[in-house]
Write a protein that binds this DNA or RNA. Sequence first.
DNA 1: GTGACTTTGTGCATGCGTTCACATGAACCT
DNA 2: AGGTTCATGTGAACGCATGCACAAAGTCAC
Lengths: 230, 230
Amino acid sequence: MARLPVYLRALGTFADRNVATVSSEELAGAAGVNSAKLRKDLSYLGSYGTRGVGYEVAYLRYQISRQIGLTQDWPVLIVGIGNLGQALANYGGFVSRGFRVVALLDADPARAGEVVAGLAVRPFADLSAVAAEHGPCIGVIATPASAAQQVAGALVAAGVRSILNFAPAVLAVPDSVDVRKVDLSIELQILAYHEQRKTARFVALDGPDDVRDPRFGAEVPAGAGFGGRP
Amino acid sequence: MARLPVYLRALGTFADRNVATVSSEELAGAAGVNSAKLRKDLSYLGSYGTRGVGYEVAYLRYQISRQIGLTQDWPVLIVGIGNLGQALANYGGFVSRGFRVVALLDADPARAGEVVAGLAVRPFADLSAVAAEHGPCIGVIATPASAAQQVAGALVAAGVRSILNFAPAVLAVPDSVDVRKVDLSIELQILAYHEQRKTARFVALDGPDDVRDPRFGAEVPAGAGFGGRP
DNA sequence: GTGACTTTGTGCATGCGTTCACATGAACCT
DNA sequence: AGGTTCATGTGAACGCATGCACAAAGTCAC
Ligand SMILES: NC(=O)c1ccc[n+]([C@@H]2O[C@H](COP(=O)([O-])OP(=O)(O)OC[C@H]3O[C@@H](n4cnc5c(N)ncnc54)[C@H](O)[C@@H]3O)[C@@H](O)[C@H]2O)c1
Ligand SMILES: NC(=O)c1ccc[n+]([C@@H]2O[C@H](COP(=O)([O-])OP(=O)(O)OC[C@H]3O[C@@H](n4cnc5c(N)ncnc54)[C@H](O)[C@@H]3O)[C@@H](O)[C@H]2O)c1
């Protein structure tokens, strides 16, 4: 069900062009998925289409928004106002999609008081007060990886049950808390993996299936930083 | 196979602590996955463990790095040096993981020449020259969504076959090109979805399964911006 | 050297997501 | 009003990932 937001965004582009109804084929094309998958996804929400015609853009948009829980604005608090935290705070794309940044927190005393994107940076100790003030909200971790687990613990203690983590660290939280991670290094490494196989195909035409060769272990240069097998 | 980078990172933390060997249980714990899954994943690369002992940290680290294609540094070029592009350019976590930002491109003439993270921002027209200079590389799109498709086309035309897209847009590219997307709004919306179901449980104790009720369609306020069903 | 113990590597079953294909049903034209 | 056309909604088959449970294999102690 991670595709609903994509459908919603695609519906938005149709609405901007004043399109009244779309077929599953058109919408699937705009969302980059199979049309059968789109129909099956939408059928889980209910029968919101008209056979022979398609889906009414405005109506389907509302139904998906309601399903996701975007009929209300969700408060977002960002922890760690460094490079990334500032970019996030300045990002206008959140408010237009049902989210509102309500607080910026940082442990660095030098940063407290600084104004970023119209909000004053508050000391990390204010966390529980801020969380209590806004009710159910979403916490964003943009601190170094070494602080991520500690911050996550503090967020949970403050009552936050939804966390978006940008730090390259695995977080341990209670089952009742949802954590989603965004790790750019992982994305780049996956791309590098495919890129390597693509370029390798030009070197060895019989395909990249032989890379398993265990002898490669012996070919590690002594000073490579990893060390070879003893 | 998107988990290999996670294993690699977990292995890094063990190496930092001078741990020589790890069992699949320990490593799986650090990576946040099931130990059977970890062993099966590693078995696809070959038999790099020792029964009764575990995996040698340094050796396994090298094997995974090689599998991913991290024995060489991959050049990265960033298009769109706004809030996000600058944060990415300033991020030190890339170089430590086998990536090197080699060029910053922006269409805004006012930005060209500006120095960000020790690199001069170059005009977008330099793209093909930069790509040709560095060979196989990874393109990062950090422009507004409206420009994303055009930028993607230019990247492909310049020979880039791996793209990381931060803009909330579906990109159409040839099959030979890999695109991975990072969409923060989608992540937040997924969190909101779960958060909604959690909070809804306190309101209606019989569970959130009734939200399908089609009558809800009639309850759209006239001025909600979406419009009700006619 | 032998035995007991530890941990890997994997066969197998289960469940989930994806996709094809078609029947259902609505609208439109004559 | 009847037939035609069109696109939805869904049944069923397929393929893949996950996780259990166990045999193979190697180590360590004595
Ligand atoms: N900058 C990027 O583009 C980028 C890309 C990918 C991942 N990341 C990850 O995002 C995180 C932040 O990156 P960054 O470049 O913004 O780092 P940064 O060093 O610029 O900012 C980190 C901020 O967190 C604050 N902080 C440190 N410990 C804290 C604590 N315990 N509680 C609250 N605040 C604390 C620091 O004061 C600092 O302001 C890192 O984990 C990084 O790996 C960043
Ligand atoms: N800032 C964030 O934290 C954040 C978070 C999530 C997603 N995003 C997405 O990332 C993208 C960039 O966000 P941002 O906040 O940095 O925006 P921004 O407006 O600050 O920066 C965009 C930059 O792209 C440049 N640009 C525009 N058209 C271009 C073109 N055709 N070729 C090359 N460069 C071009 C502009 O000159 C500008 O410098 C957007 O699509 C946004 O939705 C940003």
